[in-house]
Write a protein that binds this DNA or RNA. Structure first.
Lengths: 342, 342
DNA sequence: ATAATTTAAGCAATCGATTGCAGGTTTGAA
DNA sequence: TTCAAACCTGCAATCGATTGCTTAAATTAT
């Protein structure tokens, strides 16, 4: 690579026989520069193909106009939609986004966070990995004076702005729907209980059963079934029980629900008549399976926009300190064929 | 937000009564520092929760260890997989990724590129938007001495490193497969011919027909059918013809093929017996539709890794200038139910 | 015509880390 | 014992943009 020398404000200054200060002021549209010279500077800058060195600028200003986002997986529909939502707002505010994925690894999550702190981003938005129970790296973000916003999967004990789904309520409604459809033995595939979202979903499940006086059967609750493969495995076990369930709620994801559907089909269970299936997240594919899968939409893009707006609101009133608070978005049950037997 | 003062090397230096130079050297593990002091410095740095200011460091070094990626859409399977592939390599090399999406808008693509130039990224990886025919913004990247790597959708006239699919060959094989299955009137949904990939796919289509002496019928070639909606619309038109096609190749994407499938099904055409459907990109959902959709896999993650490796190879031999060249990855036909009628 | 004010532009320090050069000390070889 | 090599460490400049302060010039008010 040719080490092409880039144009700096000094080059422009030299060419016009003025100082870099004036060039800088002109480029920042300060009104402490003569209109004529300003025009001349702008014109020369364009001619020389000048591009501001943001490194220098940011170093001086102590602000990078950059938001870092850490998600478990970029290519999971929910997360990519949240990112799209964030981007919509940040783009209009001329902010940059640095996107990192933790791949569900705690160790990598920490590395990402540290990289973002090093980068002096103005804000970090995170949904934590499945792994890990220690969140001192998040505290560290705060200690460095960086605004932290958690979403979806949040560490309760770290007090920050949080944007979450009302998982419990959504699950409650979903299970109620299953009961309405006449399902009586409803199994739950649960995610790691270290994560708030999975605890809340379980809670919604239990409350719905309780309300309808349906007994909670331990063998119908399967831990850690949060991938397609684990969902499939769990289903194989469940459907081989002497008294198998007549519905399975894959509380962790639609991927898990997909695993359920495939195993159920291959084992000859008719969906939805003999087995109801309910997923979570409204991945696009849930519409395409046969039968299509009932699921819960999280308004992911809207969540992203909410997150970004929250940041800009807060950063505007610098004087007052940030009050940790939680914004809860109510998800929506999307009823499809896999649970419609009436 | 509290404007917490961050620890700098000067703070460490002051505390230990040495100079910042030594601290810097110790932190960079230079061997020009006494082992004992080095240890002491590292210990103190950890105690003070020191985080290197990459802005300052990069400014000084003129290198950011950051690669910028510009894609039309982050949440399209092909692109998110390429990104995942890139990330795998860059992560291991301790490089950062800044990901931008153009949303298929030329104007936004230019803004992204300029933002990345401002950020002084070391390399820009891009797959261009559907919109646009002027690629001076890419030339501009090169003029700023930034390594540019194009992939998939490339601007032929800009000489850079390129990583592409052999679209023509892949299409040729796909169409040959259709012919083998006995399809005779094969329609083509083509993408904007401004993009190389769509031109190549059309070329493969034409060559395959020619080779088998099948006449090319103009009314079976539909321009600009590159979204699900446009694919659906095109299909409605095609299947209403006096002599409708018996197969449709959605050369633009699986989304388009999905539109074809939905319309065909709703119009009562049996797939694959009465109508064969072929997509492009091997989106995960193609496996889930009924019938499942035959498509072409592009080894997207592998492409991503190839791109990143290419960059690191090139950056290692700084002395020699980069020779523009093209690496072609051969995609693979995935035969599924939607074209299997034998 | 002179003082007061406004406007324009320069000077120089600053952000934090890096690094070539130089000075000083220690070690080892002759 | 003397000199060279090896090893540490400090000094000061540098990366490029920004900005408070100052000075000079131009404009307005008195």
């Amino acid at each position: 690579m040719k080490p092409k020398k880039r144009t700096t404000i000094y080059d422009i200054a030299e060419k016009l026989n003025i100082t870099a200060s004036s060039v800088s002021r002109a480029l920042n549209n300060s009104n402490h520069v003569n209109e004529e010279t300003k025009k001349l500077i702008l014109k020369t800058a364009a001619e020389l193909n000048y591009k501001r060195n943001v490194l220098a600028s940011n170093l001086r200003k102590g602000q990078t106009k950059t938001i870092g986002v850490v998600v478990p997986r970029i290519n999971q529909n929910f997360f990519s939609n949240v990112i799209a939502g964030i981007e919509e707002t940040t783009y209009s505010k001329n902010f940059n986004l640095i996107i990192c994925q933790s791949n569900e690894s705690h160790e990598k999550e920490i590395k990402c966070i540290n990289a973002l702190i090093n980068q002096h981003v103005d804000c970090i938005v995170i949904s934590v990995a499945i792994e890990g129970t220690d969140y001192s790296h998040l505290q560290n973000v705060i200690d460095h004076g960086i605004q932290l916003i958690q979403f979806d999967r949040v560490a309760d004990e770290i007090e920050t702005l949080k944007v979450i789904n009302d998982n419990e309520q959504a699950t409650f409604e979903a299970i109620t729907h299953l009961i309405d459809q006449g399902y009586k033995r409803i199994a739950l595939l649960e995610g790691p209980q270290t994560l708030n979202i999975f605890r809340q979903r379980k809670e919604g499940y239990l409350k719905a059963l309780n309300k309808h006086k349906i007994p909670v059967i331990d063998e119908l609750i399967i831990e850690n079934a949060w991938t397609k493969e684990l969902g499939a495995e769990a289903t194989r076990k469940l459907l081989s029980l002497p008294e198998p369930p007549d519905a399975i709620f894959a509380s962790t994801s639609d991927f898990s629900a997909l695993g359920v559907l495939e195993v159920a089909t291959s084992m000859g269970f008719k969906v939805p008549t003999e087995l109801g299936i309910l997923g979570y997240a409204n991945e696009p594919f849930t519409e395409l399976t046969s039968p299509s899968i009932t699921t819960i939409d999280q308004f992911s893009q809207y969540m992203g926009k909410t997150i970004a707006n929250l940041y800009f609101q807060e950063s505007e009133n610098k004087d007052t300190t940030v009050v940790p608070r939680t914004i809860s978005v109510k998800p929506k049950l999307i009823v499809r064929a896999s649970t419609s037997r009436k």
